[in-house]
Write a protein that binds this DNA or RNA. Sequence first.
DNA 1: CCCGACACTAAACGGGAATCACCCAAACGT
DNA 2: ACGTTTGGGTGATTCCCGTTTAGTGTCGGG
Lengths: 211, 211
Amino acid sequence: MTVALKKPHKSARKPKGDGHLRRGEILAAAERIFIAEGYAGATIRKIADAVGVSSTALYMHFRDKDQILLEISDDAIGQLLAVNVDIAHRPIDAVARVRLMLEAYMKFALDNPNTYQLVFCGSRDVISKEKQAATAELGDRCFAEFSGPIHEIAASGRLRTGSGESAAQVLWAACHGLVALLITMPDRNWAPREELMKVTLDGLLHGLVTD
Amino acid sequence: MTVALKKPHKSARKPKGDGHLRRGEILAAAERIFIAEGYAGATIRKIADAVGVSSTALYMHFRDKDQILLEISDDAIGQLLAVNVDIAHRPIDAVARVRLMLEAYMKFALDNPNTYQLVFCGSRDVISKEKQAATAELGDRCFAEFSGPIHEIAASGRLRTGSGESAAQVLWAACHGLVALLITMPDRNWAPREELMKVTLDGLLHGLVTD
DNA sequence: CCCGACACTAAACGGGAATCACCCAAACGT
DNA sequence: ACGTTTGGGTGATTCCCGTTTAGTGTCGGG
């Protein structure tokens, strides 16, 4: 950002070198390492080495390590949000939309396990809440998008129990729990993933929504 | 007697308790700090200071940091297992037993958030799987105890969908997801916890089990 | 009286994040 | 043409962390 071209007359001095490129390079390298080795494995020094720059240089472009990784996560979550928005606009039954969103959510988590863990399993130890600002806001918008059809269902009186809000939270939590366990304990002998997802969704939707 | 004061020792040294007391003292101090400050906050040096001993001394009694914290967690999970065993033997309907166990599970998680996170949310980054041996085995036995009544239900043909195994895993995962989110994102505006637990259990049990 | 075992320690190591005090050269104003 | 800015960069340093090494003082036997 802050891309301003040089103006013949007064005002600021501008892009001298390839400063902005650096930022992108860092993000790219960091993403590669983070995906491959997770939060703890994505060291400042390792990222800097991969870019071919000293570790100090990263602090020219990012406040701290968390900002780098959260920026990467923002990208990924932005994609998830886009999918949710897309689904939200389809002219199909609200329950079907809910199911599609949750399926997309779980697929996202399983496809991006490290990002998912960083954003949704990050203990307060690891990342202080303030830093998450942007990422958290994206997450909120995802949840808001997801809450939409749920509240439609609630408004039409098809909710068997609880409020729309609690139903949305419970559905989210159940899917989160499933993918979180699959990610953090991949060696347990799980039933096939598709079956687990299907049972979760069938079970909860059948249990919460009257048809 | 013989309070060896030879060297101008920094601060009061422990008055020579017999060796095997030390181990218990360390565990007690570690538990206190771990509960208050979590995994990252429970530093070797901090624990050692609390006991009044040098950090090196901890390695006389424990292989490494993880062994200390996992031993603490074993204690806690042992209690959960005891509760599950107790419930398993009650002469009540299998579904009621399942519900009681899951309620106890969630209560345990919310009462011991740091332990819960360590054992059930520990990314592979944080603790290598081998070290978890004892703890993981306790967790397995908890799950086995929980699977019992589920398989009873499955055997009596009351399962609406999926296998007994997948139903057990899904129920566990859903409850895990709920408490995990409540623990790691305590600032979101959640519906009341009791309602969330109730909706989760009502929804899933109603959706999975025919009455 | 010495000897080894024990419980413990200070110091150090390697590696993390982050900061400091600089440096270098291109870009600008004049 | 030339000093000055200033953006991008660095190496050394700080402060923790978990863990290791090389000891040190005390003790119970032989």
